[in-house]
Amino acid sequence: MAQSKKLEAWQSGPVDGVPALLQPVAHALLQAREEVHTLMEGFPEELLWEQPAGVASVGFHLQHLKGVIERLFTYARGEQLSEEQLSNLRAEGKPADDKAYPVQDLVRNFDRQVDQALEQLRRTDEASLTDFRGVGRAQLPSTVLGLLFHAAEHTMRHVGQLLVTIKVLQRKEQA
């Protein structure tokens, strides 16, 4: 009897309520969430902030995954970043002195951000996708679609980097 291989998010059909043109963004975010859960299962807390060969830590990637989605989706709404978002950006990659960041808390924070992003995708009018959106203080030119697509692409890029960092750390632990 052949084992059935789990389908990737994009192979599972449309995401309910998400406009057709935004399905690739939704699928990438759902795929990222699934891969993060798989990668972080049983990950040892003591390795969370290790930086093998000077690369970004697993903790950084988990914080950044949440943060990049939040920031780019904020710009896609036509808003600027809040002071709290800017503070969180500056804190990425640094364990807080006043509180611990257990692995599962970081994963849950990412999950919540993906859920919020999916809700925003459901509320996004396809007619607005080419609307101008200025990014940051310099108001760098983008569009709603450009920001949403970049959020998905950037998220998947960091999931790949997270995978490599975890593999290096696991190899180091085995040595």
Rank of each mutant, 00 (worst) to 15 (best):
M1D: 09
A2R: 14
A2W: 08
E8R: 15
E8I: 10
W10I: 06
P19T: 03
P19C: 10
A20V: 03
Q23W: 08
A28Q: 08
A28N: 05
L30Q: 12
A32H: 01
A32D: 00
R33I: 02
E34K: 14
F43D: 04
F43L: 14
E45C: 06
E46K: 15
S57K: 13
S57L: 09
F60P: 06
Q63W: 07
Q63F: 08
H64F: 13
V68A: 15
I69H: 06
E70Y: 02
R77N: 06
E79A: 13
Q80C: 02
Q80N: 13
L81F: 12
E83R: 13
Q85S: 09
L86V: 04
L86D: 10
S87H: 12
A91V: 01
E92I: 02
G93Q: 04
D97G: 12
Q104E: 15
Q104P: 04
Q104N: 13
R108H: 10
R108D: 11
F110G: 03
F110D: 07
R112F: 04
R112E: 15
Q113S: 07
Q116C: 02
E119V: 00
E119G: 03
D125T: 00
S128W: 00
S128V: 02
A138Y: 04
Q139D: 11
L147F: 09
L147D: 11
A151M: 12
A152I: 07
E153R: 13
H154Q: 11
T155H: 12
T155E: 02
R157Y: 10
V159P: 11
L162Q: 07
T165H: 03
T165G: 01
I166S: 05
I166Y: 01
I166K: 09
K167E: 15
Q174E: 15
